[in-house]
Nucleic acid binder design. Structure first.
Lengths: 221, 221, 221, 221
DNA sequence: AATGAATGAGAGTTCATTCAT
DNA sequence: TATGAATGAACTCTCATTCAT
């Protein structure tokens, strides 16, 4: 009652997931109706229940899927950096890019507290886990100061989420309507934020000015 | 159709707001029904519409009310500090205490993206405004480093929100059920977080160890 | 969420119960929809849930209500008889009259095995309990033979139910459509059946022919 | 679109009928879904419509099949008896045994009033017809009293059905859950019931006590 | 000011049946 | 013969809101 057994079924499920992501981003989880989602996917309402047990099941599958992808993007970004400072910066860059491209993840997770606390926590915990591992390695390598990796990881998560919300998702000067094209974080804000976290972590070389850091990273972008 | 004109009316409206806060905290905005709220307030369903135009109106009034109170608590806390470092620390302390006592604010705001984007933004912007003003003054006084007050303010907001969610609202080891007594942030986590933001802001004297800071502030608590 | 608190509410609930009885009789429990029932009661669908928690709740309330009334009718009938033979006969007479007037009870109970086993069993057990008590008293008084009251009571229940179904509810020569006026049991069938059970119980005087018995009871009817 | 044309097809249809009987017994006709039945038969949903025109068609085929088999069992049992009294007893014995083994027949027929009145009536009428013929022959032979065979046949049907329901299908002391092993009628109840109907029919020799009858019939069982 | 009955649109979900392969 | 994906109408139930008293 869940996994498609033919190619056609696989396509249909993919269509549903894509439609759900779009509708969730536009209207949020609660306001999104199965009717709206299936309509957008060009399938009948009943078809939905061939691949998902419930609206909640869809939600959890979607969050898990997006979570996997955002972590992949972040770790790919971090891997581009040759030291912790660069890894941090590139990880955030990817995080914001993903947020801009998949606003559904962001928005839906914030709505999820009462919908699926488990899914929400798992989402944050997995990202934080990535931060924590990175920080532990960096600390062992002497690249950052004497910080508690766990607490620092949650703090980084918070910084990223709030900056992402404010500068990526809120269309500047807008009245709050969604669905319009989201803008990525402006360069100066991004640099300020990166400098903020690097000071917080005591990253080696974080004393350089934000402007200098920006000039540096422009080269490899 | 909104402002109570008698003392009795005032009490009724207050009962409704208190009930709404409790029910919102327990079930969230979407799941909370007017029926449940009026039941908890011991008034008839129709009475609700004597004081609120709609569920949304209630929501916005409640968020505004709580927002005013959390800002008051934070600025009172900050005023207790004799320098920026202490102000920061005491502000956060009050923020977490308020979060523990009024989980509804926190939870409902996160759910509000699609309910009332205006109310949600106003909530964050007002708190950030407080941070920003404090940071600007501190910078003018040379108490903190060369940070952009606006970006730093949003970053602080993010740190506070995420740490609050993780350490105040999630009953440790729990499966996600709400309604149980929330625990405030553990001392060591709190100290780590404060040290994190003080390094990030380049607060004068932030080089002291977290333990030392803790010892210091214990005296005046 | 259940008991009406005003006269108007009481009338509405009564209208719903009456409509439900009619619709259940016509279409059965499963096929009867809340929409159909509320339409017939001239109220909105939502009104239904002011007085019943669910379709099942309505069903159980209705069965209990009808059960109470059929037992009242039967015991009133039995009380008219001056000996066990007459009590038996008059009890059955009332049972069939009730069945003719309230086919819903009969039909809905037979459908209830999977809907509400508890309600179905309670229905039968309560009626049987009445039979059993009557039989025990009759046996103590020497009015009937040496029968096991419990087993005999269930047997009587069976006879009544099947004869009722066959001769009261099945419109003779009909193709099975319901909703037409039900006919009560024809006199000769009734007499035969009464004679059958009186022989089975060894009721004193049951050796008289059915015809004679009929002639006898005509007088007091 | 109905009759299997190959051996393989025949097996598939048989699997479907067996699965349907089991599922009907467990959940009843209405709650049983084609999906559940085909799943249990280990065939795809579409396969169902190769052998049955509709769910109703399946129901009617199943009822007819079971009806044929229960009548066969009953008449085989009756044939074992060397007189009417014994025939009656053995017929009931088989009826209860069949009920215990095929609870679906019993339960589904009671649910059938609105599903297929025709099938339900035919089921009862055919069994009653068997009773009636037996009673007519017995009466002609002077083995029973002066009873109307038609009415008596329906009464016997009722006794059997109700005793079967009460003592075969209701697991004693149970809360109404089905699917557990059904117990056959206890000996003493069975004897009481047989004595009941034999008195009702005025079966020759029915004045003997139930115990005596039991002793008698034990010999040939 | 307060009540509680009434509303009705809309939600998620089920399921017998059909269709393309 | 057999599959399983797809359909869409119909269902029960919820709930913010309005109305009559």
């Amino acid at each position: 009652m869940n996994a498609p057994r033919t190619k056609r079924g696989e396509q249909t499920k993919a269509k549903l997931l894509a439609a759900a992501e779009a509708v969730f981003a536009e209207q949020g989880y609660q306001a999104a109706s199965i009717a709206r989602i299936t309509e957008r996917a060009h399938v009948a309402q009943g078809t939905f229940y061939l691949y998902f047990e419930s609206k909640l099941d869809l939600f959890e599958q979607l969050v898990e899927d997006l979570n996997r992808r955002v972590r992949k993007a972040m770790s790919d970004g971090a891997a581009r950096g040759s030291n912790r400072a660069e890894a941090e910066r590139e990880g955030f860059r990817e995080f914001f890019a993903f947020t801009a491209e998949h606003p559904a993840l962001y928005r839906v997770v914030r709505e999820a507290e009462y919908v699926s606390p488990g899914a929400m926590r798992a989402h944050y915990e997995r990202i934080v886990e990535g931060y924590r591992e990175g920080l532990e390695r960096a600390r062992a390598a002497g690249e950052i100061g004497d910080v508690d990796p766990e607490v620092a990881a949650w703090a980084l998560m918070g910084v990223g989420e709030m900056i992402g919300m404010r500068y990526v998702l809120w269309p500047t000067g807008d009245d709050g309507a969604y669905g319009t094209a989201a803008t990525p974080v402006p360069d100066d804000v991004f640099d300020e934020m990166v400098a903020f976290v690097q000071r917080a972590l005591g990253t080696a070389g974080s004393t350089q000015t934000a402007a200098a850091t920006a000039a540096l990273t422009k080269e490899d972008s």
